[in-house]
Design a protein around this nucleic acid. Structure first.
Lengths: 325, 325
DNA sequence: CTGAAAGCGCTTACAG
DNA sequence: CTGAAAGCGCTTACAG
């Protein structure tokens, strides 16, 4: 190159390594001229750190995920990491092959957004020394770290708001039964109802799917008696529910109050103006990254389960509590 | 390991290499037991192919991009490639540092979704032999391949539909002036108006931004005379425009017809039911991948500019052409 | 078909 | 502070 040894060059590009001002200057100058930059892959081989984080994500049509992805990517970029993305079917086979692919790329860590992992898969990652954190999906006993919102509390809060507004025929279109987020929010619903000595009008599994939720709403509203309020397991389904109910000729919130969960950007738009429980994406992202990086950088390896509480955002799709304007 | 040389193992895991049935079996068995899989990074070093595609994306809040990202990722995954994601500010500095990062990771190719690249940056990639394709953003003279929809035609088509429906005071809230997608759609608008001997009611730059578009809509509808139809540069802005106009007390399409561009999933939802020009994401993704991979795999290196035409999707936000029901 | 050898581009003890 | 040497885990001519 221009004057010094390979080792010297390496030291110039390694922060915290000793190099004299003179060499630094010589090397930098030559590097600029040549357009030289260290090869991250070669560095990864020798250090064992690829600075690549694998992200497994199932659905991108739910607005919550693009937003989370963007923040995750930005925050990680700021720390010198980058995201290798894998979209995965929610089947366990799909996840398995994806995780193997991820491991082939020597990722330093894995963020699984809204997908579950079998315990054998979790064990595989553990054996390979790859930390995993579940984002927006808990899985007790999996031996994996997880960051979620306080789903039971959130479900309780949403339901309580409906009760406070004077509703009594309250239905729940639940998030998917196969997910802890779904069952936790439902638990909150049931707790609040029980506390108020109310019987749920109905509980239906919406499977986090627009079509299923819409069908459920149609059915609920077609009976001899119909609910006067519905707590829906996430915003994505709640929009479908609102569309369906309005198309049937009902007014929201005059005939039915609707509350969702997530507070995706669209919830604030005038066409829906949806009351919802906010999942604080930025704080969830922060917690995810802190947890993951501390495991990667080895300061601690014990797993963590973090729940972040979020407020109810009162908007126009649900009646206000009695006594308030 | 279990019986053979390193070279033999390599051959078993390299398709198209010669290895006897016996060795294949021995190696596979040992690999299974050990959980061995080839290290992609090490392979990348020697072959010069990382099988990583860098994706630069600016905004994920416009629903068009999550959808494109998901399809891009799936299609690439099927071909053995994976996406390293970079979210970038739309400033040229931001892009520059992002592209350098990308090059450090030895990506085989770059997809730039809705961002522009300076010609010096383009030259940098060319020198490094990294093919780039622009997705949903043209840039004539950049020496870069690009895949877009037929934006001039699409703008024309949308405007013509408004004219056919009997509108005469037609305004355009344009996509960003600094982007070819924006100016092309505007060109289509102007051509159609001129052809029909109509004068545009107004043309305002919405900068692909909800707030700016909403402000523009408010202003347009507050004048002494107001437009009876608005062609908006993309769906993302169109939703904001619809919200604003409805909040002002106007009915859509009774008082004003609205047409957008993209046909994102939300456009089909009942709350908006937006007439729009479809950008055929799947075909755009296909074209992008074909172009990129053929450049990577070296079959051809000449650049291509592909425009894909999409139909107008007539929905409830705009009046039907005269003579139709 | 198969093994020994070289080399991809780096970093990191180890001497000096 | 600095250079020579070894090694990360692979693939690929090159002989056999």
């Amino acid at each position: 190159m221009a004057g010094v040894s390979q080792s010297a060059v390496s030291r110039v590009f390694t922060k915290g390594a000793s190099a004299s001002a003179a060499t630094v200057q010589k090397v930098k100058k030559a590097a600029d001229k040549l357009g030289y930059r260290p090869n991250v892959l070669a560095r990864a081989m020798i250090t064992g750190k690829s600075h690549i984080i694998g992200l497994v994500v199932a659905y991108l049509d739910n607005q919550f995920y693009p937003e989370a992805l963007e923040r995750l990517s930005n925050a990680l970029q700021a720390k010198g990491y980058h995201i290798l993305i894998f979209t995965a079917p929610n089947s366990s086979d799909g996840i398995e092959s994806v995780v193997r692919d991820l491991m082939d790329y020597q990722v330093d860590g894995i963020i699984a957004a809204s997908v579950s992992m079998s315990s054998s898969l979790a064990a595989l990652c553990a054996k390979a020394g790859i930390p995993v954190v579940l984002f927006n999906r808990g899985q007790p006993g999996s031996g994996l770290s997880a960051v979620t919102s306080a789903n039971v509390k959130g479900g309780y809060r949403a339901t309580q708001a409906l009760i406070d507004a004077g509703h009594s025929r309250i239905a729940h279109i639940a998030g998917w039964n196969g997910s802890l987020t779904g069952t936790d929010r439902q638990q909150g619903f049931e707790d609040a109802m029980a506390n108020a000595q109310l019987t749920p009008f109905a509980i239906v599994d919406g499977m986090y799917n627009r079509d299923i939720a819409a069908a459920a709403a149609r059915q609920l509203m077609s009976g001899a008696t119909s609910p006067d309020a519905i707590f829906v397991g996430n915003d994505h389904m709640a929009f479908a529910v609102m569309d369906t109910i309005r198309t049937m000729g009902y007014a929201i919130p005059k005939d039915v109050s609707i509350i969702g969960y997530d507070d995706v950007p669209l919830a604030a738009w005038a066409a829906y103006d949806l009351t919802t429980v906010r999942q604080p994406v930025n704080r969830m992202v922060e917690a995810t990254i802190t947890t993951l990086l501390s495991q990667i950088e080895g300061t601690d390896t014990y797993l963590q389960t973090i729940e972040i509480d979020g407020p109810l955002i009162q908007r126009g799709s649900s009646r206000l509590p009695k006594g308030q304007l």
